Computed example of a mutant assay.
Amino acid sequence: MNKHFAQMEITSCDYPPTRRGHQRRLALLLSANELFLERGYDAVSLDDIVHHAGGSKTSIYKYFGNKEGLFRAICDYRRAVFFKDICPAFEQSKDDLRAYLIRNLNNFYRNLVANENAAFFRMIVEHTKTAPEFALYIHEQGPKVIQTVIAKALENAHNQNVLYCPKPMFSAQLYLGIIRHLEWKTLMGINIEIESSEVEAYFEYSIDRFLDGHQIA
């Protein structure tokens, strides 16, 4: 994790030009990530982060703007890692659509139920209650991205007469609904198994019904 955090770019604030500054920024990211997961966003102050990481609040203001900027930087990183391999672009010449749709659900599911991801996901949802702009930002950069990628795959299939899908964005919402109850379980802290034959069978069944509903008459 240290390596990946170190490679993050914060374009809205100063990026440290020196190795020492780079290490200071990394220490703040790691400390804030740990404290936020341990206590929750609201319970952690800038003083807590500085005390844990060392240094001063000046570095936070310089590299992240404020506490919200620091939290967003962590969210940007975790979101990029979370969604990196979940939903790659569909390649019509290489991918089988059914297998592609099932694989994406399985990838989403495994990332979703990982303990640290689940804890961070719950914290984000809690924070969005009092930060509507942040909520919109997270949605646009996360779930909306997956919906758009799936919609594009369905649109291509429709244009090639593989499926009947005149409203691909609507259909992509239906697709994401397949995993919604697992997201809710995660939010409520209900333990679900990472490896589950029942979940895999559910995904396969759901995708088959989803594709049945998009067959060309």
Rank of each mutant, 00 (worst) to 15 (best):
L97I: 12
L176V: 06
L112C: 03
V125W: 05
H158M: 00
A157Y: 01
N156I: 07
V162D: 07
I179D: 08
S197Y: 08
F108P: 02
K167E: 12
A119F: 03
R98A: 07
L187T: 14
I86H: 13
E126V: 01
M123I: 04
D96T: 09
I179S: 14
N111D: 07
Q147C: 00
V149M: 03
V125H: 04
L105M: 10
D95A: 13
F90K: 13
L136N: 08
I194K: 12
I178R: 08
L154W: 00
I124G: 01
E193M: 15
V199R: 11
I190E: 08
I146G: 02
T148M: 03
E140H: 02
F121Y: 00
Q173K: 15
S93D: 14
N191T: 15
K129F: 05
L187Q: 10
E183A: 12
N117W: 02
E116G: 10
A89P: 07
A119G: 02
I138V: 04
A114E: 14
Q160R: 09
L101A: 07
R110S: 06
E183R: 14
I192Y: 07
V162G: 05
L176D: 10
E200K: 06
D96P: 08
A114V: 03
M188Y: 13
T130G: 04
Y109V: 06
P88S: 12
I194P: 09
A114D: 11
L97H: 10
S171I: 11
I138Y: 00
A114C: 09
H127E: 07
K129T: 03
L182T: 15
N159I: 04
A135K: 01
P168V: 01
N106M: 10
N161G: 01
N104V: 14
N156P: 03
N191M: 14
A118H: 00
K185H: 13
L176Q: 10
A89L: 15
W184V: 15
A135D: 01
T148L: 02
R122I: 00
Y164T: 12
P132E: 00
P168G: 04
I190Q: 13
I190C: 07
N107A: 11
Y109E: 01
K167P: 02
N159R: 05
I194H: 10
R103Q: 12
I86S: 11
K152Q: 06
W184N: 13
S93E: 15
N161K: 04
C87L: 11
K94I: 12
E200G: 05
F83L: 15
Y175G: 04
L174S: 11
R103M: 10
G142C: 03
Y109K: 02
E116R: 14
K167R: 10
I124Y: 05
I102C: 15
G177C: 15
L112Q: 00
P88E: 13
F120E: 05
L182D: 14
R98G: 04
N111I: 09
S171W: 08
A89E: 15
E126N: 06
E126W: 03
L154R: 00
R122D: 01
N104F: 03
N107E: 08
E133P: 00
N111K: 09
E140I: 01
E116C: 09
I102Y: 08
